[in-house]
């Protein structure tokens, strides 16, 4: 009998909902209750005196204006540290666009008989495109001299739309971009996140040597291929896809794996400092990163 494992899916949806509620409630609290402790959204979030600035926006502003502003740098460093250790977790656990995607998936599951196991993505491109999107975005912004993330960074777009809707009772035209992204999701799961999101590209670049990874135990794996089907990024998890920089640690494959071959693990350093002479010679604990060799 297989032991009952934690369902990351439930926790992830909870976290996404909480994150979405945060940016939905913040303008309301600010406007009607004058509660200004929390302000902003995922472009720049202010919690008391702590400022968190989105690394994409902050870096682009720094590169274009060639001006270093210390509060902004400190604000950038927090998400960068998180991405360095945990990888692209912002995208799968916090991003409001991810929340909307998941909600669409839930509706589709309920009413339109959507099943991720039988679902086939309609448009499949090379995952490498995300690097070109990231580089292109930076280069184009530097040529134009204006940041263009305003139009193509969806977390900021959603937050700005919510703020404008609540405070000024009007929506900006940029909302159409959000609708377009959600529309593309109907053809390929997370189409924009997979191939074009510059923020996602930056976070996966920062986190390509992340500590938290999904480990594949080759001995338990039966090559059923379910993980590859359910992966929202379309990664071949059974062939070591979870070790690639594109993995965003959502835990979907861990939930669906029937044999329990997949699990999260915190990668420690390869060569642990030996405690005494004995451990130096042979029995040192070295974690295996290679999926093909197993444990």
């Amino acid at each position: 009998m297989p032991r009952k494992r934690t369902k990351y899916r439930k926790w992830r949806y909870l976290s996404l909902s909480a994150a979405f509620l945060l940016i939905l409630l913040t303008p309301i609290l600010n406007l009607y209750f004058h509660f200004t402790f929390v302000q902003g959204w995922y472009q720049s979030l202010g919690i008391g005196r702590l400022w968190i600035v989105s690394p994409l926006e902050g870096l682009e502003s720094l590169l274009i204006s060639k001006y270093v502003y210390l509060p902004s740098l400190i604000g950038i460093s927090i998400p960068i540290i998180v991405a360095f250790y945990l990888g692209r977790v912002f995208c799968s656990w916090i991003c409001p666009i991810s929340f909307l995607h998941e909600t669409i998936d839930l509706i589709r599951k309920k009413f339109f008989n959507f099943n991720p196991l039988t679902w086939k993505d309609k448009i499949v491109l090379a995952l490498k495109i995300i690097w070109f999107a990231l580089i292109g975005e930076f280069v184009l912004s530097m040529i134009l001299g204006f940041p263009i993330f305003v139009f193509i960074s969806p977390p900021g777009l959603v937050g700005r739309e919510l703020m404008l809707g609540i405070i000024f009772h009007s929506l900006a035209l940029e909302g159409l971009i959000v609708l377009l992204i959600l529309f593309l999701h109907l053809f390929t799961r997370r189409f924009y996140c997979r191939y074009f999101c510059p923020l996602g590209g930056l976070l996966s670049f920062i986190g390509h040597k992340r500590k938290l990874k999904v480990r594949l135990r080759s001995k338990k794996c039966t090559q059923c291929g379910i993980c590859e089907k359910v992966c929202p990024m379309g990664l071949p998890v059974n062939r070591g896809g979870s070790y690639s920089p594109y993995c965003w640690n959502c835990g979907e494959c861990v939930d669906y794996c029937p044999t329990g071959a997949l699990s999260f693990y915190w990668k420690r350093n390869y060569y642990l400092k030996p405690l005494n002479e004995k451990s130096k010679t042979g029995n040192s604990k070295v974690q295996n990163d290679n999926p093909l060799q197993g444990e």
């Binding site: 913040t26 303008p27 600010n30 200004t36 302000q39 902003g40 959204w41 472009q43 720049s44 202010g46 600035v53 989105s54 926006e57 902050g58 682009e60 502003s61 274009i64 204006s65 001006y67 001299g145 204006f146 940041p147 305003v150 900021g156 937050g159 700005r160 703020m163 405070i167």
Partner: peptide, 16 residues
Amino acid sequence: DFFASRCIRCGRCAES
């Protein structure tokens, strides 16, 4: 000259 390039469009000024 520098405003549009340095502003990250976070809108916190409008919110506050």
